[in-house]
């Protein structure tokens, strides 16, 4: 591709993403009082979307492969456990991530 074509492609990809990010704001731009249904969605969507994002992060795991599944399950459980216990976000995330990085190197050596 020529440089111009690359620039056009990048602009179009950027437009596609921006469209999805801006659309809700454009739709309700001139609305003084949000409809009840939208206000309700605004309240309950964050929790549901966080659930979706957790599943989204697990989607690439090959669930037939013990060397992949075991580190993932243990580390996610560790993050949740430490967070429910101490409720310090950075701590829970750091413990889980270090554990994961160790386990993906060690478990495949042990798992049959």
């Amino acid at each position: 591709m020529s440089e111009l074509q690359i620039l056009v492609m990048i602009a179009i990809l950027g437009f596609g993403v921006a469209l999805t990010r801006f659309l809700p704001f454009l739709v309700f731009k001139n609305t003084k009082k949000l409809p009840k249904a939208v206000e309700y969605l605004g309240k309950v969507l964050p929790a549901a979307m966080m659930g979706l994002l957790v599943v989204y992060c697990l989607k690439d795991c090959n669930f037939g492969e013990a060397g992949e599944v075991i580190p993932l399950v243990i580390s996610v459980a560790a993050v949740a456990g430490v967070h429910l216990w101490k409720r310090k976000a950075v701590l829970s995330i750091a413990v889980g991530t270090v554990l994961y990085m160790v386990l993906i190197r060690v478990i495949p050596l042990i798992a049959v």
Binding site: A47, C57, A89, I93, T97
Partner: peptide, 18 residues
């Protein structure tokens, strides 16, 4: 390798908060 798990962990934590 595996450092990208930090974002999974972030979503798990924020999911619990939610």
């Amino acid at each position: 390798e595996g450092l990208d798990f930090v974002l999974t962990a972030l979503f798990v934590v924020l999911f619990i908060e939610q």
